Simulated assay, not measured.
Amino acid sequence: MTTNENPNPNDPAIEIADNTALVVVDVQRGFDDASFWGPRNNPEAEANIAALMDAWQETGRPLVLVRHRSVLPGSVLAEDQPGHAFKDFVRDRRDTAALLVTKTVNSSFHGTPDLARWLEAQGIGGIVVVGIQTNMCVETTARVGGNLGYEVLVPLDATHTFDLEGPDGLSLTADALATATAVNLHGGGFARVTTTARLLSAVRGAVTA
């Protein structure tokens, strides 16, 4: 393991093991349909995800792609819809993936093939979770991963989500939901929330160390 330098003693340096897996969750074309989902946040999410995928490829670390196959009527993520496909930048990097998981629920650990079984077989104890939506499948995957004992890192700026309505007229913006996810995961001890830049620094530092 290697570490990147960090002057903030309250935010310890990040360690990225050589076999830490990057889990890219649900980066599918259907999420580009604003008429279906509504306003989103973090327009830099896709560029940050691509940068992390490239860094993992360059350093030979394992990449896991997760794709949602919705069973809800009318969903843009249904298997027979164009939105089920990966976004182009993920499709272009798909050949470097070590595993492709298909799921119908929020958790990437409840799909096919079994992600936890694969990670165990590879001797992997740490994962980085990125993708869509921050407060849905990314957060759920990170929570379950933390419960299963994995060291989980979530670069919040490599995720995005959408405004959401709740009961009795309650609603939250995408930014507010992302903030809640960061607090839930980091404050709740499920995962360490960080940034794309810090992860890239850690990974590339490992190569030059």
Score class of each variant (00 low, 15 high):
residue 70 S to L: 11
residue 126 G to T: 09
residue 20 T to G: 13
residue 45 A to S: 14
residue 10 N to R: 14
residue 187 G to E: 03
residue 17 A to H: 13
residue 183 V to I: 15
residue 44 E to I: 10
residue 152 V to T: 15
residue 69 R to E: 15
residue 91 R to P: 00
residue 94 R to I: 01
residue 5 E to N: 10
residue 69 R to M: 13
residue 5 E to A: 14
residue 55 A to R: 01
residue 137 C to N: 08
residue 106 N to K: 08
residue 40 R to Y: 07
residue 146 G to T: 06
residue 112 T to Q: 14
residue 140 T to K: 05
residue 145 G to S: 06
residue 172 L to F: 11
residue 48 N to F: 11
residue 17 A to G: 12
residue 86 F to L: 14
residue 148 L to K: 11
residue 102 T to Q: 10
residue 197 A to Q: 07
residue 16 I to T: 12
residue 104 T to Y: 01
residue 48 N to R: 10
residue 40 R to T: 15
residue 51 A to K: 06
residue 173 T to H: 03
residue 56 W to Q: 05
residue 151 E to K: 15
residue 188 G to A: 02
residue 116 A to N: 12
residue 53 M to W: 01
residue 187 G to L: 04
residue 19 N to K: 13
residue 164 L to D: 05
residue 17 A to W: 09
residue 148 L to A: 07
residue 35 S to G: 08
residue 95 D to G: 08
residue 69 R to V: 00
residue 25 V to C: 11
residue 7 P to M: 12
residue 56 W to Y: 04
residue 74 G to V: 09
residue 14 I to S: 00
residue 162 F to K: 12
residue 135 N to F: 07
residue 46 E to I: 01
residue 203 V to P: 04
residue 159 T to S: 15
residue 132 I to L: 10
residue 209 A to D: 07
residue 40 R to M: 11
residue 150 Y to P: 02
residue 192 R to D: 02
residue 203 V to N: 02
residue 10 N to W: 07
residue 103 K to D: 12
residue 173 T to Y: 04
residue 124 I to H: 06
residue 135 N to K: 06
residue 200 L to D: 00
residue 94 R to M: 07
residue 151 E to H: 14
residue 47 A to T: 10
residue 128 V to E: 06
residue 184 N to R: 09
residue 146 G to M: 03
residue 16 I to Q: 04
residue 179 T to M: 13
residue 98 A to P: 03
residue 178 A to N: 09
residue 104 T to K: 03
